[in-house]
């Protein structure tokens, strides 16, 4: 029911820059990194402004909790700032900071699982009240809105049912639109492994979201 409406909507990818845009963006990043390494704090602030929305998405979809996301994101940028003198530029700044973010998030999730007090109740309801999401399917229709809420809840549950490694690739590829090759560099695993993880994750998601794809 919902998927047909979702597929007909124009969904703008969060991360799908063209090759030339990517290159000029990488050049701009290199310059900002050079200035930040020279001690110019404003240059690092510019990197925070540029990358915090993307990293927020990655961390949030991995943790499904806004408070945890905020704290973790602060720690990620603090670590990147401290480690910046050691950044040699062998990879792009984008790959480097994404790798820091992914490792810290996966470590955080391991610790969180060990915490007895944490439960699924701590997962945010996310976009239930997000106007953009509700607009996708005519908010005027109350039945449709309840469908959106139901879908959103199921989406979060399905994502949380995935293993951390599978959730990471689904987040980066399906939600953030990062290509396989880039994910492979970030996670330091082969592209084949990324494709295989995606395949199994999609199969698992199909089981959880069956009612929405009929």
């Amino acid at each position: 029911m919902l998927v047909s409406e979702a597929s007909s909507s124009a969904i703008v990818p969060v991360f799908m820059p063209t090759d030339s845009a990517k290159e000029s963006s990488a050049d701009a990043d290199r310059e900002l990194v050079r200035r930040a390494q020279a001690g110019e704090m404003a240059a690092f602030d510019a990197l925070v402004v540029k990358f915090s929305p993307r990293l927020y998405g990655m961390v949030y979809h991995m943790t499904s909790n806004r408070e945890d996301t905020n704290d973790l994101l602060q720690d990620i940028f603090a670590k990147a700032y401290r480690s910046l003198p050691r950044f040699r530029g062998t990879s792009s700044f984008y790959t480097w900071i994404y790798a820091i973010a992914t490792n810290m998030t996966l470590n955080f999730l391991k610790k969180r699982k060990r915490r007895a007090a944490w439960s699924l109740d701590d997962i945010d309801t996310g976009i239930q009240n997000d106007e953009a999401m509700i607009d996708i399917g005519h908010a005027a229709n109350p039945r449709h809105q309840s469908d959106v809420n139901e879908l959103q809840k199921k989406l979060n549950e399905a994502m949380q049912a995935l293993s951390d490694d599978h959730r990471a690739v689904v987040t980066m590829f399906d939600i953030q639109g990062i290509p396989h090759a880039e994910i492979s560099k970030i996670l330091k695993v082969s592209e084949g492994t990324i494709r295989s993880r995606l395949f199994y994750a999609h199969q698992q998601l199909q089981g959880h979201l069956e009612e929405f794809i009929r």
Partner: peptide, 8 residues
Amino acid sequence: LIRLKRYE
């Protein structure tokens, strides 16, 4: 469906 999470 998963792409809808971009709106969060």
